[in-house]
């Protein structure tokens, strides 16, 4: 659903960008991607103070071997440093993803520490939010004993994943089964997702459903999603992205969260952000955002930051 962003991707004079393919030869390809983002931020809420935060401070290593007959073996190791940079723990880096897999034409299967199928769901366009992105994000969208199947077709994308509970092992945690499917036609993107989550062994399991739609009208993209976890909460997002200048785009959105429990306060959050991409390098951007909720005793939050990708 990142297409919401891409649909109004601002044009740049040079038009060039580059990913870093480090080595390519004899069937081996090694690619290094980076995502560095820093923010000067005051969070939404009461008595929040401004600080400098990192959001995405990642190095992503991807290695693949061409095995012939349209078969590829691949591996991925991603390191994230944002928590270390924010002083949240001392061990330097955090292993964000680590998996191996095989692809056969347009189908791939992978095993390891990775995102669930439902991580593909959602249309929100905020840099930071008080709310969860959607109900799947609230329930969990990544694991370390995960088997994932991806099928990419001309106009459709289908993903299934299963996270084992690994009872009695060091990686013991919950059990999750996720599905995601999306399709595109006539500038419309439709998606649906499902998750069955058991957050710990022996605990009650929860079903979560979600649907989304996005329409690219040329001058702007409009999108909406709705997701619900049985007996827990419902949530919807409405967002729009539009270009305000050849190098600048703007996004606005609203998220409403409605809890089934009377002990939790329902609330609505809104945000508006602007992103400037340098005409010489589209991978360097500056951005700013304001956001607020209708919760009692909550003050508006704001941020300004910079992002570099390669």
């Amino acid at each position: 659903m990142k297409k919401l962003l891409l649909a109004v991707a601002v044009s740049v004079a040079a038009g060039s960008a580059s990913a870093a393919t480090i080595y390519e030869g004899k069937g081996l390809t090694y690619t290094l991607n980076g995502d560095l983002q820093i923010q000067f931020r005051k969070e939404v809420g009461k008595d929040e103070h401004t600080d400098i935060e990192f959001d995405d401070l990642e190095l992503k290593n991807h290695v693949s071997y061409d095995l012939g007959n349209d078969m590829t073996a691949f591996g991925r190791i991603d390191f994230g440093f944002k928590n270390a940079a924010d002083g949240k723990y001392d061990d330097g880096s955090n292993l964000e993803e680590a998996y191996l897999g095989m692809s056969f034409g347009n189908t791939s299967i992978s095993f390891g520490k990775q995102n669930f199928a439902s991580d593909e769901f959602g249309i929100e366009e905020a840099y930071e939010m008080e709310s969860k992105n959607d109900r799947f994000d609230a329930m969990g969208t990544s694991g370390d004993d995960t088997i994932r199947l991806d099928v990419e077709l001309a106009n459709a994308y289908i993903v299934a994943s299963y996270e084992m509970d690994a009872e009695g092992e060091a990686s013991e945690n919950g059990e999750y089964f996720d599905l995601f499917a999306s399709t595109e036609f006539n500038n419309i993107t439709l998606a649906a997702a499902y998750q069955n989550a058991t957050e710990s062994i022996g605990a009650e399991d929860f079903d979560t459903w979600g649907v989304s739609a996005a329409y690219d009208a040329g001058f702007a993209t409009f999108a909406i999603d709705y997701s619900t976890t049985d007996d827990v909460a419902d949530q919807y997002n409405v967002a729009s992205v539009f270009a305000v200048a050849p190098t600048t785009k703007m996004a606005i959105g609203v998220i409403d969260t409605d809890f089934d429990s009377i002990n939790k306060e329902d609330f609505t959050e809104w945000y508006a952000n602007v992103t400037y991409k340098f005409p010489t390098q589209k991978n360097v951007s500056l951005f700013a955002e304001i956001a607020d909720t209708d919760q009692s005793n909550s003050d508006m939050g704001y941020l300004a930051g910079m992002r570099l990708k390669f």
């Binding site: 990142k2 962003l5 990913a19 995502d35 959602g122 990708k309």
Partner: peptide
């Protein structure tokens, strides 16, 4: 250079 979708809110660049 394509922006390849990796999840709902992330992408990587691929040439």
């Amino acid at each position: 250079t394509a922006e390849i979708t990796e999840s709902a809110d992330d992408y990587v660049l691929e040439d």
